Simulated assay, not measured.
Amino acid sequence: MTFPTYLFLSFLFCSSLLHRPTLAIKKSYVVYFGCHSHGLEVSSFDLDKVTESHYEFLGSFLGRNKAKEALFYSYTRHINGFAATLEDEEAAQIANHPKVISLFLNQGRKLYTTRSWDFLGLENDGVIHSSSIWKKARFGEDTIIANLDTG
């Protein structure tokens, strides 16, 4: 192979690397529509209908198949909305739709404390005392216990 041929092939190879299409970065967004039209008595059919409406809405922007891949959670009970992985441009288009009340990044929250049990008096340095509410409540048996400290 001659030097000019080698130089030309090297140029083509390098230029093809520079002209590769870049993939847009997708982020997780929450699309919020407000409240549901279904009442308090909700059937599984109603919940499926809500999820299907979310797929249809997102499909109108992305196409049905891409919507099935992008949408990963549908809020069907208390709020009406969904979470999906979208490109920034797709999110901007969706945010401008009149049915959308808000669209925001789906961000995780960091837990700042691991000492809530001590603070609430449930344990003291990992020890459960006999007067602890844990023992009085039979350690939450048949009870749903939650504590969300948002600061």
Results as ranks from 00 to 15, higher is better:
residue 33 F to R: 04
residue 65 N to E: 12
residue 41 E to R: 14
residue 125 D to P: 00
residue 115 R to W: 06
residue 49 K to I: 02
residue 67 A to W: 02
residue 150 T to Q: 08
residue 4 P to K: 05
residue 85 T to I: 02
residue 46 D to H: 10
residue 90 E to A: 06
residue 51 T to Y: 03
residue 43 S to M: 09
residue 147 N to D: 09
residue 29 Y to H: 09
residue 72 F to V: 15
residue 18 L to Q: 05
residue 2 T to N: 15
residue 4 P to D: 08
residue 107 Q to Y: 07
residue 58 L to I: 14
residue 98 P to C: 10
residue 8 F to H: 09
residue 77 R to L: 11
residue 82 F to M: 05
residue 42 V to Y: 09
residue 42 V to R: 15
residue 37 S to Q: 09
residue 141 E to H: 09
residue 38 H to A: 13
residue 9 L to S: 12
residue 105 L to W: 00
residue 148 L to Y: 14
residue 28 S to H: 14
residue 10 S to D: 03
residue 106 N to R: 14
residue 27 K to F: 09
residue 49 K to T: 15
residue 53 S to I: 00
residue 103 L to V: 05
residue 78 H to A: 13
residue 58 L to E: 06
residue 45 F to K: 06
residue 71 L to R: 03
residue 6 Y to F: 05
residue 16 S to R: 01
residue 27 K to L: 02
residue 58 L to A: 14
residue 93 Q to N: 06
residue 42 V to K: 15
residue 21 P to E: 05
residue 96 N to E: 15
residue 11 F to K: 10
residue 62 L to D: 04
residue 7 L to D: 06
residue 24 A to S: 10
residue 50 V to Q: 05
residue 16 S to F: 02
residue 109 R to I: 13
residue 17 L to G: 09
residue 25 I to K: 13
residue 10 S to L: 15
residue 53 S to K: 09
residue 33 F to A: 01
residue 97 H to P: 03
residue 6 Y to E: 08
residue 80 N to T: 01
residue 85 T to A: 08
residue 104 F to S: 03
residue 75 Y to L: 11
residue 112 Y to T: 13
residue 7 L to C: 05
residue 22 T to I: 07
residue 38 H to V: 14
residue 18 L to K: 04
residue 63 G to P: 03
residue 59 G to E: 10
residue 143 T to H: 14
residue 111 L to T: 15
residue 105 L to D: 04
residue 51 T to W: 01
residue 33 F to P: 01
residue 1 M to H: 04
residue 70 A to M: 10
residue 75 Y to C: 08
residue 126 G to E: 07
residue 109 R to H: 10
residue 48 D to E: 14
residue 87 E to I: 00
residue 29 Y to I: 06
residue 22 T to E: 06
residue 115 R to Q: 13
residue 130 S to A: 13
residue 107 Q to I: 08
residue 7 L to Q: 11
residue 60 S to W: 08
residue 104 F to K: 04
residue 94 I to P: 00
residue 58 L to C: 14
residue 33 F to V: 00
residue 11 F to R: 07
residue 118 D to L: 06
residue 136 K to N: 04
residue 147 N to E: 08
residue 140 G to R: 12
residue 82 F to W: 01
residue 5 T to P: 00
residue 32 Y to Q: 08
residue 6 Y to T: 08
residue 114 T to K: 10
residue 31 V to D: 07
residue 36 H to A: 02
residue 143 T to N: 15
residue 37 S to Y: 07
residue 71 L to I: 12
residue 59 G to Q: 06
residue 108 G to L: 13
residue 1 M to F: 03
residue 31 V to E: 12
residue 107 Q to M: 06
residue 35 C to L: 11
residue 3 F to D: 02
residue 59 G to N: 08
residue 96 N to L: 14
residue 68 K to A: 12
residue 70 A to T: 09
residue 73 Y to A: 13
residue 17 L to A: 05
residue 28 S to M: 05
residue 5 T to D: 04
residue 86 L to E: 02
residue 79 I to W: 12
residue 87 E to P: 00
residue 123 E to G: 00
residue 76 T to L: 01
residue 52 E to F: 02
residue 64 R to N: 05
residue 68 K to V: 13
residue 77 R to K: 12
residue 56 E to H: 07
residue 140 G to C: 05
residue 19 H to C: 11
residue 5 T to V: 04
residue 115 R to A: 10
residue 52 E to S: 13
residue 49 K to Q: 13
residue 26 K to F: 01
